[in-house]
């Protein structure tokens, strides 16, 4: 049974212990992220959310425990193969060279198996989704922060286009942090589309209400443990929020969706 869930999960974290500068930030972490689901990773600053993303991406090493992607140990994947299955959008980008917007999206296609014509179509489609197609010739460093974030979202989602929908894994680390209201909805809706097509999407989100609205599953971290895991109603309780954020929240219910709203 345990074996079965391990191989079915898109991402499987087994007994992860993560330390940074000698401090334990995640302990005995047992988490699985499944295909077809958009999961939110919540928690206070420094709870290890970004570190978990970097661990899954192979940039950080766990002190103990193992990470498996589609049932295969993380370190057994070749980097090109892994990049076609899993794309990660970090919080910040260091890019300061004058690539055009469409060239930046093209950087996600380094190991793409699509034909050049398909790649051009894909770049166009992704840029239209994030509302940047009309700025495709613009120089990247001249864009605003929100526009840059949308270009990178287009890039990482294009990276996944070579594999079937059910094999795609998308990790977003505060992808919506500098987006305006309408683009925030647009991005979350596109991420939900990827999940509904069978992909596995994990988002680090600070806006609890955004998570409640768009994510089918919420995982709440309070260092060094996961303290709640389930749907919005189960996770966003007064007690959980007090425990994780040390903040006396008021929870009300949205009149239409019956989803909790944290005030």
């Amino acid at each position: 049974m345990q074996r079965d869930t391990l191989t079915n999960a898109a991402i499987s974290l087994d007994q992860i212990e993560l330390t940074m500068a000698g401090k334990t930030i995640v302990e005995a972490c047992q988490l699985q992220f499944h295909a077809g689901q958009h999961c939110a990773l919540l928690g206070p600053n420094g709870a290890g959310k970004s570190s978990l993303i970097r661990l899954i991406g192979g940039e950080l090493q766990a002190k103990s425990g193992s990470v498996a992607i589609h049932g295969r140990a993380q370190q057994d994947w070749s980097l090109p193969e892994l990049s076609r299955h899993m794309a990660i959008l970090p919080q910040r980008s260091q890019l300061n060279f004058h690539f055009s917007v469409s060239e930046v999206v093209g950087l996600g296609l380094l190991h793409s198996t699509l034909s050049l014509k398909q790649q051009r179509q894909l770049i166009r489609e992704r840029l239209q989704v994030v509302d940047m197609w009309q700025l495709r010739e613009r120089s990247y460093p001249q864009l605003s922060g929100g526009e840059q974030q949308r270009v990178h979202y287009a890039r990482v989602t294009a990276q996944l286009a070579s594999v079937p929908e059910s094999k795609r894994i998308l990790l977003l680390d505060e992808a919506t942090s500098s987006l305006d209201l309408s683009h925030r909805q647009m991005l979350m809706e596109d991420a939900n589309r990827i999940a509904s097509e069978g992909g596995c999407v994990v988002s680090v989100v600070h806006d609890l209400n955004l998570a409640a609205r768009y994510c089918q599953r919420l995982v709440l971290l309070a260092p060094p443990k996961v303290i709640a895991d389930g749907n919005a109603k189960q996770v966003l309780s007064k007690e959980n929020i007090a425990k994780a954020f040390d903040y006396p929240a008021t929870i009300i219910e949205h009149s239409d969706s019956q989803q909790p709203i944290v005030l």
């Binding site: 991406g57 899993m86 260091q94 890019l95 690539f99």
Partner: peptide, 12 residues
């Protein structure tokens, strides 16, 4: 040029 972490995530 994207940065080392992102280059790694892109398969480099």
């Amino acid at each position: 040029l994207l940065g080392e972490a992102e280059a790694r995530y892109s398969g480099v």
